Simulated scan of single mutants.
Amino acid sequence: MTASNRLWIVYLARLALLAAAAALAVAPSLFAVRDIAVLTEFLSLLTIAIMWNLLAGYADIVSVGQHAFVGVGAYALFGFAVIAGVNPYLSILLSSGVALIVALPVMVIIFRLRTAYLAVGSWVVAETLMLGAGKLSAFGGGSGVSLPVSVVRSFGHRVADRYATIYWLAFALALAALVATWLLMRSRIGLGLTAMRDDEEGAGVVGVNLIGLRVLCFLWTAPFLGLAGAVITLQKLRIAPPASFSITDWTVYVIFIVVIGGIGSFEGPIIGTVVFFLIREYLSEIGVWHFILLGALSIAVVLVEPRGLWGLIRRWLPADVIPVSRPVRMKTSKETAR
């Protein structure tokens, strides 16, 4: 296949991505309620995957406690909307602020650690927050509590209307996470993050502020995770420590998604989320073999290509489908003389 033909494949892939985004933009008018529920889960998990990929793939923060901020966002939504009586829509936005506030002391704790110690430390912090949430009697204690009907109906009196509203919230969140992170990666900050991904020691030598970028990325992801937790709570209609702070749903599955899709790439989380949901929807009936297949597939992909499925595809493509790097413009002799 010639280079020009491969370039056409990139263009077609970009058109397909835009077509998929257009279909998602009008999904409530195209799909049934059950399909809308699945798409809402897809968009929520995609948002979380984008955030974990930014941390682990670029900033070298391999966190195993990302579910902490999802749970904080869920409980913050309940606290504002139910206990404080704040408007439910405003409560969603406030949940992002609470997640950001909680991220500050958490960052101080876990940033004293590196590599495997950081991963374990982040998990311990998340489990501590989960145990603390179980002690809050106003939030249902260890068994949790359902959202009251008055809060649920504020998003739609009919089931179909409520599902559509929550879907739009998940769609707006995923779009904001994707676009905002893309703009971040297109900036000078993104250039430093790309350098960290490719060669962390070399990036530090040439002047990249490694600590500053890690702090920025950690604080960048927390509000998005808090918002994702709020949207997920609206869909599930209840909070509970094991579910809201689920390490399996919001960390283990997310790690699988990013690793199999392609860590350290913008396309990876999208590909990984699609693969994960295809396996979950069509092979979940086989029971425990469903999880064995997920593990075997991730191991097989990493052995063949550590950069995941996108790494395999990228071998044959001359450019990224979602470009995050700016082309380097060579200075002319006159500009150099100046």
Rank of each mutant, 00 (worst) to 15 (best):
G295A: 12
I322H: 01
T194R: 14
I9G: 05
G121V: 11
A296Y: 06
L15Q: 08
V38D: 08
V86W: 06
R307S: 04
N209L: 07
A203V: 03
M107L: 14
E267V: 09
P241G: 07
A228V: 10
S96N: 04
V252W: 13
F245P: 08
W8D: 05
L136D: 13
Y117G: 14
A25H: 05
P323S: 03
G134W: 10
Y75T: 06
T251E: 12
V72E: 01
E285T: 09
F256N: 07
A228Q: 02
L129G: 15
G229F: 08
I211V: 06
G261E: 15
G190L: 08
R112P: 15
E41L: 09
V125L: 13
G79M: 01
G144M: 14
G65P: 03
S325H: 03
I92H: 05
G311M: 00
G204Y: 11
S298G: 08
M185V: 13
L294P: 06
R214G: 04
E201P: 03
A20W: 09
A13S: 09
L234P: 00
L193K: 12
G71C: 09
L227E: 01
G207C: 08
V301D: 07
L237I: 03
G121Q: 14
L90F: 06
I270K: 15
L293C: 06
V302F: 10
I313V: 11
G85H: 07
V259K: 03
R238Y: 10
S244W: 02
R197M: 05
L46A: 05
T273L: 02
L169R: 12
R326G: 06
I247F: 12
D198I: 02
V179T: 00
S91T: 03
A27S: 03
T221Q: 01
H67C: 10
G71H: 06
V106A: 14
V152Q: 12
F69N: 03
G141I: 13
A99T: 04
R153L: 15
I271V: 14
T233S: 05
L219R: 00
Y163E: 10
V64W: 10
G85K: 01
A59F: 05
